[in-house]
Amino acid sequence: MASGGKHIIPFNVYIKVLLALLALTVVTVLVAQVHFGAFNTVIAMLIASIKAGLVLAIFMHLKYDDKLYVVWFGSAVFFLVVLWLFCWTDFYTRVFQGPIL
């Protein structure tokens, strides 16, 4: 008896998601052994984000829930990126003036 708006995700979907998450973990570990230089970080973050997306969408029911939560959670990530972006802009456009101390 599911009262209005509560979506029940089938059991085997949960299992499939876990298998996908485990597979992606293996992929992350394998990719890390290969050297792509700076791209290693990018690839690792990309795979982590796919995993995070799966957890959010299925385990945390975001896919079937109020879209407000998606916007709200997304805004947290967005402002985090803002924090990083401006700090990064500062760090990488500073003119190095030689050792001060």
Partner: peptide, 17 residues
């Protein structure tokens, strides 16, 4: 959320920022 650096104009923050 996009303006905090105006407290830091003379802090050693880069000029572009």
């Amino acid at each position: 959320f996009f303006v905090w650096g105006h407290h830091m104009f003379v802090s050693g923050q880069s000029e572009i920022a």
